[in-house]
Nucleic acid binder design. Structure first.
Lengths: 187, 187
DNA sequence: TTTGCTTAGTCAAGTGACTTGACCAATGGG
DNA sequence: CCCATTGGTCAAGTCACTTGACTAAGCAAA
């Protein structure tokens, strides 16, 4: 009888998809076989810690992240959501994420409220495949997509392809809150 | 030199994905070849109107919908968005959609603000593949997912798999506004 | 009619990403 | 030492979609 660890396959798959990699690409970087990764993502195999370490390094996650159980309930209440600060996730200065959907969970969607403090904004754009939607809940946002600046007010929304270079700033001296949803799917 | 009609391939693909069908399934229902549909969705052929008619019938769209050009700009401003009323899109009584992302456009995401009037709610669940996120902007919502009732207040959010039976109602006597994003991708 | 050009639509082979099954080699108890 | 596990590989298989070669209908000029 084998003692089983919690399934991490879907989380790994998600992390890979976010980076827009194919199994083959990851296999090349990690130096293992594509098929092994396939089995791993389908929870048919336990990797060695060394291999797992190489994998999370490439995928820019951590082993702890893989094993942390994230909240999977349907509803999350205002004020009870997990906060991710700037230093955790590289999103530039003065931004806190309040996660609506916990990341690295094999989901098609990622959603969070971005709380952008006065003068804060995103750092360089992460260019992955997919799409982005957002809605300004409160405050103002200066959004730059593919070279064009948009100044957004509460109730305004945006939508664009993730592959376009994009970034944002809060030019005011009050916090801005933006509901942001995106998908890493490669279609 | 051939006169070309606007590209409808991506819209058709989107409509198909929303229904969770493969090319093969659609081909079977429409009674044409899978490969022809492939070419069609990649804008390599012009279908005859008869065939197109059969296709949109199965996909529950209309030819006019395929050819209507929808707004594709990045930002949409509060109060300027297209409204879809209950009678257009079968969503039960007393619900108006304010589209953030115009549908049937080959997108990975669909987003809208659901304005649910007092006592209004969704009709029977449309069971497609994908995921759903939402955030209550204003008012209260009674959300039912897979048999469980959740009572939501402003700032609360939810997330679940589209395949789970789901529906909602506004039990109060004031309008409720919910920002709702979902994806039809089959992964 | 005949010749020639397009093009809706088919059939079957090809492709890309992932999965599976057979196998190998190191480890570790009895 | 033997045998069973199990991390990991290689090659074949699968699935959804795409492509290329082809057919047949329409139409125009001669």
């Amino acid at each position: 009888m084998s003692e089983s660890t919690p399934p991490i396959g879907m989380k790994l798959r998600h992390a890979r998809k976010v980076k827009g990699m194919r199994l083959r690409d990851l296999a090349a970087e990690v130096e293992c076989s594509e098929s092994f990764l396939s089995k791993l993502e389908n929870d048919k195999v336990q990797p060695s810690l060394q291999l797992l370490h190489r994998i999370v390094a490439v995928l820019e996650t951590s082993i702890s992240n893989l094993f942390s159980d994230t909240d999977d309930s349907v509803v999350s209440r205002a004020g009870t959501r997990q906060l991710l600060h700037t230093s955790n996730i590289r999103r530039g200065e003065g931004v806190t994420l309040e996660t609506l959907i916990s990341p690295s969970q094999g989901h098609l969607l990622f959603g969070a409220i971005h709380i952008v403090r006065a003068g804060g904004g995103s750092s360089g754009p992460i260019s992955h495949e997919g799409e982005e939607v957002g809605y300004v809940l409160e405050g103002e946002l200066e959004l730059n997509v593919d070279g064009t600046e948009y100044h957004l007010y509460p109730g305004d929304s945006f939508f664009f392809q993730s592959r376009l270079p994009h970034g944002y700033r809060n030019p005011t001296d009050k916090d801005t809150r933006v509901l942001w949803v995106n998908t890493p799917s490669t279609f």
